[in-house]
Every structure is written in C-alpha cells, then in structure tokens.
C-alpha cells in the first residue's frame, strides 16, 4: 500500500522531469555557451577541442551603444503595448460584458475573427495604413521617443501590436467582467454612481488579477515581438532586441552561437525574472474569474 502511494507520487514527478529535461538542457546550454568560445554538447571546449575555453568576450556586445538603443526601444514597445492593450481592453471588455448596444454580437464575432488571422496575412494592408498615418503632421512622424505613429516609427509598431493583441485582451477582460456580480454594480448605480464611476471605482478593483495578468502577458509579448518591428522599421537591425538578435544570423556565413546565446540570454533575463515574480497573476488568465480565483 505504502509502495503504491510512493509510486503514484513519484511517477508524475518522473514524467514531469522527463518532459521538461530538454527545455532545462536548452537553458543550461545557453548559460554555458555564453561563457565559452565554443561548446561540444554541454561541455565548453577550446579551439583544440579540449575542456576549457572560458571567455567573457561573448558579452562584449554590452559595450556597444546599439544594444542599449534596441533595449530602450524594446522597453518602450513593451510598455506602450501593455498600456494600450490594458486601457482599451478594460473599457471594451466592460462595455461588451455589461451594456447592450446594436452590433454587440457582431463586434464580438469580428474581434474573434481578427484574433484568428495570422499577423503575416495582414502585413501589407497594415503597411498602407501606416504609410497613410505617416503623412499626418506631428502624429505621423514627429513625436518624441516613439517617433510618431506612422511607418518606420516605434509608435507605429506599438499601434499595430496593440491592434493585433486587442482581440485577446478584450475577450479576457470581458470574461473577467462577466464573473463580477450584477448586484454590486446595481447597488453602485442605485446609489447614484455614473457608468464611468461604477466602472472605475466598483468594477475595476474586482478584476485586478485579470488586469495584472493581461499586463504581464502583453509586456512579455511586446518584449519578444519580432515580425512587426522587423517589417515596419526600415533599419530593422536597430529596432528591437529580437531583430538585433536576428541580425546575428547570416544566411551564408557561420554564426557565432556563443554570442547569439549571450544576446538571447540578455533578452530572456528580464522576462524570466518578471515571470518568476508574477506567474501567480499570469496563471489567472487561464483560470479566469475574479479576485482570488487564481
């Protein structure tokens, strides 16, 4: 009996270890590679193939201004995406959850369809929109930090990323608002609150875990974003960390995988740290529900 209990407890762990091992090995390889001239499997080796060859030279990119430009851009993109998605999703999610208006169902269906569209199919159409936005004075190309909202600006990339991320955000927020009791809202309205105040003071505090989860999810999406900055920034290698990383890969020349691993780890670290501290909230996306549901 005791043996059965032990086995039933051990087997899931063994299976989990077995399935996560390749991922763990991948991370270990990245870590080792960043401090080695080359690796043989997980073993750091020198140019003669013997154990050794430790170096810090793979981190030399940290002393180039380019990496800090792309890191700053990536941070702005991730923050802009997060703020944009959360604000619009909070408002749209509430309206779709609580207010009856013509076209509500159609809007919901269309949002879902947009979510199903692969980004790559929209690239050319979005390009024409961004090119048009770029012609608008000030808004198009003359905003500090983000450049503007037109083609070849960080703001344009943020705008497109928000649009592509919004369907998921709106549906998530709608799900969270659906879970909040009508009684609470009615009480607020009867007490004389306006719709806006009800939303702000009564409803939003109830879905804080959802807001936190969507913020984290959006930030991580923005941080790793590749295809949109790669397409809509002319100097793609100086756009974001992901495009900078891509620039280290050449079609024909051999790649310095140790350097690649270092930049990859540099990109990964903030996300890993962020994830460790916020995974509780992130999981509430999948669990759904209101405060405490996660």
């Amino acid at each position: 009996m005791k043996l059965k209990i032990v086995i039933s407890r051990i087997i899931p762990y063994l299976l989990l270890i077995l399935f996560t091992l390749p991922i763990i090995i991948g991370y270990v390889w990245i870590l080792i590679s960043t401090f080695s001239t080359r690796t043989y499997g997980l073993l750091p080796v020198d140019k003669d193939g013997k154990f050794g060859g430790f170096t810090l030279s793979n981190w030399s990119f940290l002393f180039e201004p380019e990496i800090w430009i792309v890191t700053f851009n990536t941070l702005i993109l991730a923050l802009g995406l997060t703020i944009g998605v959360v604000i619009v999703s909070m408002m749209a999610g509430y309206a779709l959850s609580r207010i009856k208006f013509p076209g509500r169902k159609a809007f919901l269906s269309l949002t879902l369809i947009l979510h199903a569209f692969p980004t790559v199919t929209l690239l050319i159409a979005i390009y024409f929109v961004l090119r048009w936005i770029a012609l608008i004075p000030v808004l198009g190309r003359n905003i500090p930090i983000i450049g503007g909202f037109g083609y070849n600006t960080l703001g344009g990339v943020i705008l497109v990323s928000i649009a592509i991320q919004l369907p998921l955000g709106i549906w998530l927020m709608k799900g969270f608002f659906d879970e909040v009791s009508w009684d609470m809202e009615r009480a607020a309205l009867i007490d004389g609150c306006s719709r806006f105040r009800t939303w702000w003071d009564v409803m939003l505090p109830q879905i804080k875990p959802g807001i936190a989860a969507l913020s984290i999810f959006s930030f991580i999406q923005g941080w790793g974003s590749f295809i949109i900055p790669y397409t809509y920034m002319v100097n793609a290698s100086r756009a974001t960390v992901a495009t900078y990383l891509n620039n280290l890969l050449s079609e024909t020349a051999p790649t310095n995988y140790s350097m690649l691993a270092s930049v990859g780890l540099f990109q990964l670290l903030p996300v890993l740290i962020f994830y460790i501290f916020t995974q509780k909230y992130l999981l509430s996306i999948f669990a759904g529900g209101v405060k405490g549901a996660a």
């Binding site: 390009y127 083609y151 397409t231 002319v234 100097n235 793609a236 290698s237 620039n247 050449s250 079609e251 024909t252 020349a253």
Partner: peptide
C-alpha cells in the same frame, strides 16, 4: 545600414 538579411527581405524593406 549594413546587415545580411536574405535578398527577399532586403528588397522588400527597400521597396516599402
């Protein structure tokens, strides 16, 4: 601006 994307991406980027 000097990098080494494949020719397709390079031309697309210029045309856009």
């Amino acid at each position: 601006m000097f990098d080494d994307p494949d020719w397709g991406d390079y031309v697309r980027s210029f045309v856009m």
